[in-house]
Simulated assay, not measured.
Amino acid sequence: MPTASPNKTHSNAKNTRIDVSLLPSKLQQQVESYLDATWMEKGLSENSLSSYRRDLFSFCAWLHHEKGRDDLLGVNAEWIQRHLAWRLEQGLSARSTARFMSCLRGFYNLQQRENRLAENPAALIENPKLPKGLPKSLSEEDVDHLLAAPDVEDAVGLRDRAMLELLYACGLRVSELVGLSESQVNLRQGVIRVFGKGSKERLVPMGDAAIHWLQQYLSKGRGALLKGPSDVMFPSNRGQQMTRQTFWHRIKHWAKVAGIEKPLSPHTVRHAFATHLLNNGADLRVVQLLLGHSDLSTTQIYTHIAKERMKTLHEKHHPRA
Rank of each mutant, 00 (worst) to 15 (best):
H253Q: 15
K252R: 15
K262A: 12
W248K: 01
A274G: 10
A258F: 13
A274P: 11
A274D: 08
H267T: 07
R270N: 10
G259E: 09
R270F: 12
I251H: 01
E261Q: 12
P266V: 01
I251W: 01
T268F: 04
L264Q: 05
V269H: 02
F273I: 07
L264Y: 03
A258K: 09
K262M: 10
K256V: 12
R250I: 15
H253D: 11
K252H: 14
F273D: 05
A272K: 09
A258D: 12
K256H: 14
T246K: 01
F247S: 00
A255T: 06
G259N: 11
W248D: 00
G259I: 10
I260R: 02
I260F: 05
H271I: 11
L264D: 03
T246H: 06
H271A: 13
R250V: 15
E261T: 11
I251Y: 00
A272V: 11
T268P: 08
R250N: 00
R270G: 09
W248L: 02
T246F: 00
H253Y: 15
V257R: 14
R270A: 13
I251S: 03
W248F: 13
K262D: 03
G259R: 08
V269R: 00
T268A: 11
P266E: 02
H249Y: 14
I260Q: 02
H271Y: 14
H253C: 03
W254L: 14
H271E: 12
H249Q: 14
K262F: 06
